[in-house]
């Protein structure tokens, strides 16, 4: 199968700042690919390299096998949903969506028909005459989506498109985006700093850190077998155990990750190690208990039905041996 997007040793340096540094990447055609990372990790720059708003300082980018080094953004069959939506305020919704066909020289009747079709796709059928300023954040987001899809791009880029929406709307849009991607079969490349969003939506995800990709894999792979302490900590706030502690628990002398939900708290002396409860955080569906084991803080998730220990209590910690993931690359 062809890859929709391939990066070969792609770098984007600004003077001494290495926004993106020698990144290799393949995004499979028809997949929902998430780029996850903290701000400043290079994920947005990577997206802008695909759209053409940034030029690589080194390396080669291919879109469906074609080298796009000399192709300006307007000639790439890639469209973007911008973080701030970037809707044209002086045009109504219909003209915004019909903008792509308009600059391509499509006649008025045909491009308006296309725009209406796209607006129906995002469930905004009757909003064509409104101005972007009269829409809510969620509606603007849909218009931006319709506008980006009207050109029938082969790759759709989404730059933190749900960041400005409130939680309920964000969850609804996540489901909708996922369904839309399945239906259209277009490759979606999605930038986010929200690990839950990346895990729940993506087929494949790349975790970025300091201009490099720390790990690429399916959400389950990345979540269960993080490659580096950074990935373990960033994706799902896993416990990162120092080499000495890992060895003490029966693993190799290397960094390891241990998911909070894999830990069970038992009476002191009955577990694999003992510790003191330092703090409790009530999460609704359970409580997150911080246990200090020597100098290391270990977080455990106690489900709602069970009694959580009180702060200051001495407890034992246990888990299935398979839950301890030793990170080879550290």
């Amino acid at each position: 199968m062809t890859n929709a997007v391939t990066f070969h040793k792609v770098s984007r340096h600004y003077g001494k700042v290495k926004a993106v540094d020698a990144v290799d990447l393949s995004i499979a055609e028809g997949s929902f690919f998430a780029m996850l990372g903290p701000s400043g990790s290079g994920k947005t720059t990577c997206l802008r390299l695909i759209s053409g708003f940034e030029k690589p300082t080194a390396g080669e980018i291919r879109i469906f096998g074609q080298d796009v080094s000399d192709t300006p953004p307007n000639r790439r069959s890639v469209n973007t949903v911008f973080q701030d939506y970037a809707l044209f305020p002086h045009m109504n919704v219909r003209d915004n969506v019909a903008y792509g066909p308009m600059v391509a020289g499509v006649g008025k009747a045909e491009r308006y028909a296309k725009a209406e079709e796209m607006l129906a796709l995002v469930k905004l059928d009757s909003y064509g005459d409104r101005k972007p300023g009269q829409l809510s954040g969620g509606q603007r987001q849909r218009v931006a989506l319709a506008r980006a899809l009207v050109n029938e791009p082969r790759v759709l880029l989404l730059d933190e498109p749900l960041g400005a929406l409130d939680l309920k709307l964000r969850e609804a849009m996540q489901d909708e985006l996922k369904a839309l991607q399945k239906r259209l079969g277009i490759t979606f490349v999605f930038v986010t700093h929200d690990q839950h969003e990346a895990l729940s939506m993506a087929d494949q995800l790349a975790v970025f850190n300091e201009g490099k990709i720390a790990q690429i894999g399916s959400p389950a792979e990345v979540y269960d077998r993080p490659a580096t302490p950074f990935v373990a900590d960033f994706v799902g706030s896993s416990n990162v155990l120092p080499p000495a502690l890992t060895a003490q628990l029966g693993g190799a002398t290397a960094w390891a990750s241990l998911r909070p939900e894999a830990i069970r708290l038992v009476a002191k002396g009955k577990g694999k190690m003992n510790g003191t409860v330092a703090a409790l955080r009530y999460l609704g569906a359970g409580s997150r208990v911080s246990v200090m084991v020597g100098e290391t803080e270990i977080a455990a998730l106690v489900p709602a039905g069970e009694t959580a220990p009180e702060a200051g209590a001495e407890v034992g910690i246990t888990f299935d041996a398979s839950a301890l993931h030793v990170m080879a690359g550290s």
Binding site: F53, R75, V78, T80, D84, A86, Y99, V103, R147, N151
Partner: peptide, 14 residues
């Protein structure tokens, strides 16, 4: 905003 110019170019405008 710059993103508006980028959006235009992204959608195919010269």
């Amino acid at each position: 905003p710059v993103s508006m110019l980028e959006a235009s170019s992204d959608l195919g405008a010269s």
